[in-house]
Amino acid sequence: MPFHPLCFAPLHFGLKYKYIQIKRERKNMPYVTVQMLEGRTDDQKKALIAKVTDAVVETTGAKKEKVVVFVEDIDKRYYGVGGKRLID
């Protein structure tokens, strides 16, 4: 699945690759949305936010305090691959 190199960056979490979309807003304020299947702990999400923030700072030169990270849990009932839900 091809992605524009300036819009998506792959992240590896265990067995699955997840993709984050980076949106550049005015005044160099990157907004990052991470969508992943539910089940991660609060500590894992905290570490994810810290590492994504560091990666955005390193690659874009944005100031750390300007980086905004959203973590969205996706319910497995509403996620399907190959025509089947993951829980089926």
Score class of each variant (00 low, 15 high):
Met1Ser: 12
Met1Trp: 06
Pro2His: 12
Phe3Gln: 10
His4Tyr: 09
Pro5Val: 07
Pro5Thr: 06
Leu6Cys: 09
Leu6Val: 13
Cys7Lys: 13
Phe8Cys: 14
Ala9Arg: 11
Ala9Phe: 07
Pro10Met: 02
Pro10Phe: 03
Pro10Leu: 02
His12Phe: 08
Gly14Ser: 07
Gly14Arg: 02
Gly14Leu: 01
Gly14Glu: 04
Leu15Pro: 02
Leu15Cys: 04
Lys16Ser: 06
Lys16Pro: 00
Lys16Phe: 00
Tyr17Ile: 07
Tyr17Glu: 11
Tyr17Ser: 11
Lys18Asp: 02
Lys18Pro: 00
Lys18Ser: 05
Tyr19Arg: 13
Tyr19Ser: 06
Ile20Gly: 03
Ile20Val: 08
Gln21Ile: 08
Ile22Gln: 07
Lys23Gln: 10
Lys23Tyr: 06
Lys23Asn: 05
Glu25Trp: 11
Glu25Asn: 10
Arg26Thr: 12
Lys27Pro: 04
Asn28Lys: 15
Asn28Gln: 11
Pro30Lys: 13
Pro30Asn: 11
Pro30Gln: 14
Tyr31Pro: 10
Val32His: 10
Val32Ser: 05
Val32Ile: 11
Thr33Gly: 01
Gln35Ile: 07
Gln35Lys: 13
Gln35Tyr: 03
Met36Trp: 07
Leu37Asn: 00
Leu37Arg: 01
Leu37Ser: 00
Glu38Ala: 08
Gly39Cys: 00
Gly39Ile: 02
Gly39Ala: 02
Gly39Pro: 00
Arg40Ala: 04
Arg40Met: 04
Arg40Thr: 02
Thr41His: 04
Asp42His: 10
Asp43Cys: 05
Lys45Phe: 04
Lys45His: 03
Lys45Ala: 02
Lys46Cys: 09
Ala47Arg: 14
Leu48Cys: 03
Leu48Val: 01
Ile49Met: 14
Ala50Thr: 05
Lys51Met: 08
Lys51Tyr: 07
Lys51Ala: 10
Val52Trp: 14
Val52Glu: 05
Val52Met: 13
Thr53Gly: 03
Asp54Phe: 07
Asp54Ser: 09
Ala55Asp: 04
Ala55Arg: 15
Val57Ile: 01
Val57Ala: 03
Val57Met: 01
Thr59Lys: 13
Thr60Ala: 05
Gly61Glu: 00
Gly61Cys: 06
Gly61Leu: 04
Lys63Met: 03
Lys64Arg: 11
Glu65Asp: 09
Val67Ile: 05
Val67Tyr: 08
Val67Lys: 08
Val68Ile: 06
Val68Ser: 09
Val68Gln: 08
Val69Asp: 00
Phe70Asp: 06
Val71Met: 03
Val71Ala: 02
Asp73Gly: 01
Asp75Asn: 15
Asp75His: 12
Asp75Met: 06
Asp75Arg: 10
Lys76Ser: 08
Arg77His: 14
Arg77Asn: 09
Tyr78Ile: 08
Val81Cys: 12
Val81Glu: 15
Gly82Tyr: 11
Gly82Pro: 10
Gly83Leu: 14
Lys84Asp: 12
Lys84Gly: 06
Lys84Tyr: 09
Arg85Gln: 14
Arg85Glu: 09
Leu86Ser: 10
Asp88His: 15
